[in-house]
Amino acid sequence: MALNNLKDIYIDQLQDLYSADSQAAKVTRELAGKANDASLKEALEAGVEGIEEGMATLKELITSHGADPKGEFCRGMEGLVKEARAHAIEEEITDPDARDAMIITQYQRMTHYGIAGYGCLVAFAKRLGLESDREKLQECLDATYDGDDTMTAIATGGINEAAMS
Rank of each mutant, 00 (worst) to 15 (best):
R75A: 13
V81A: 06
L3C: 12
I11S: 00
Q138V: 12
D97K: 14
G66T: 12
C140S: 06
R85K: 15
E139A: 11
L3N: 08
C120G: 11
R29F: 01
D149Q: 10
D142L: 06
E78C: 04
T63D: 10
H112C: 11
G158I: 07
Y107Q: 10
L31G: 00
D146F: 15
E52Y: 06
M1S: 10
M1E: 13
E45L: 06
E42Q: 14
A153F: 12
A56R: 01
S19V: 04
E42D: 09
Q106E: 15
D37K: 09
I103G: 07
G54I: 00
D133P: 04
I62G: 03
R75H: 08
K70R: 15
L17T: 02
L44R: 09
H112R: 12
E92Q: 05
A56F: 05
V81P: 05
Q15H: 02
T28L: 08
S132P: 12
R75C: 14
D146R: 08
A35Y: 11
D146C: 10
A25K: 14
A84N: 00
E139G: 12
A116I: 14
N36G: 02
N5H: 11
A20P: 04
Q138K: 10
D21M: 07
Y107P: 03
E91D: 15
L31K: 00
V122C: 09
E135F: 08
N36I: 06
G129L: 08
A56S: 03
E30M: 04
I11W: 08
E53L: 06
A46T: 07
A143L: 12
G47I: 00
D149Y: 06
A163I: 01
H112I: 05
A153E: 15
E49A: 11
C74L: 09
T150C: 01
K70C: 10
G76A: 07
D97S: 07
G33M: 14
G33S: 03
L6F: 07
E78A: 13
D142K: 06
F124T: 02
Y118F: 05
A86G: 07
E45I: 08
K26S: 13
L130D: 00
A163G: 05
M77K: 03
L130Q: 07
T152S: 02
T57E: 11
D142A: 03
Q15E: 09
L6M: 11
V27C: 04
P96I: 00
M1V: 10
A153L: 15
T144H: 00
T150L: 05
F73W: 13
R127H: 07
I89D: 13
L17N: 05
A101P: 10
A116N: 09
E60V: 10
E49Y: 00
K41Q: 13
D37H: 03
I115D: 01
L58R: 05
A153H: 15
